[in-house]
Design a binder for these strands. Structure first.
Lengths: 139, 139
DNA sequence: AAGTATTTTGCAACAAAGTTGCATTCTATA
DNA sequence: TATAGAATGCAACTTTGTTGCAAAATACTT
């Protein structure tokens, strides 16, 4: 556990601090994407500002990525392995937001289909987010 | 112009007020999706609270829809005609966010491809947002 | 067309979310 | 282990969003 977080930090040439390890652990043990607020609650020993700055650092290094939502919050999730090790970010799966339990899930098995943009547009990133009821809430 | 905004309000059985007309006019003459902040600047004669409430009302009636972005802001855009008149909201085109000029464009001609969710998931809404450089900025 | 019920607005106060500068503490490295 | 550089915590601040309530505007009835 500690080893894994330290490895990720070293790989991204970030210095190893307890707040970074803690926040990484939170992501590693989370089954869903997390909002800033979620992380604040789970890492309450650290200052709000530290969490803002740590999340920003992780985004810059491609350790985590953001998932856009329609409710004015941003959710963060760990990038998959190939996403971390490769130079730039590419996250090719669909995200699912459950309207009932509020969780944000990475549908790793559902990849984003290709689209053709009109002439003159260049694509850098693509996001596909589905709202609905998740498997757990349907049962 | 005034006639069009009043028609939209009447169709949605909303009372006709100057702030609602003004905000609708802003949307009608905008070529891109707008953030709350944009509307505040363009309708500065009205209270911030009024704008929040008006946008919420328009969302509830399906006059406008939201576009999720990765930068923690929500953008609003007019729904297309068939989107207004039909009972519930269905916005089937891809949205484009230009990283250079910051504008959010509705790519009306690019429809969202169908995807298959894993067993047990039900889909209510789907959003597809592309980041990159828009046509105007590429020239 | 005037009066009235209802809705909408603006204000004030507040709560939450995010940012910045700076002094202190911690980490990496020689 | 000493030190340069990076990260953290704190305080103060700005921005963003919310709520209650009185005043004003709108819609409706006669």
């Amino acid at each position: 556990m500690g080893a894994q977080t330290e490895f990720i930090l070293k790989t991204s040439s970030l210095s190893i601090t307890s707040s970074r390890k803690k926040i990484l652990e939170i992501f590693l043990s989370a089954s869903t994407a997390l909002a800033h607020q979620d992380i604040e609650k789970l890492a309450e020993q650290y200052d709000r500002v530290t969490i803002y700055r740590t999340l920003q650092t992780f985004l810059d290094r491609g350790i985590i990525h953001t998932i856009p939502t329609t409710d004015n919050t941003i959710k963060y999730a760990l990038c998959s392995d190939d996403c971390i090790t490769s130079g730039h970010h590419h996250d090719n799966h669909v995200h699912f937001l459950c309207d009932q339990c509020g969780r944000t899930l990475c549908l790793d098995d559902v990849s984003i289909p290709a689209i053709t943009l009109p002439k003159g547009y260049s694509m850098k990133e693509i996001n596909m987010v589905v709202n609905g009821i998740c498997k757990t809430c349907m049962e």
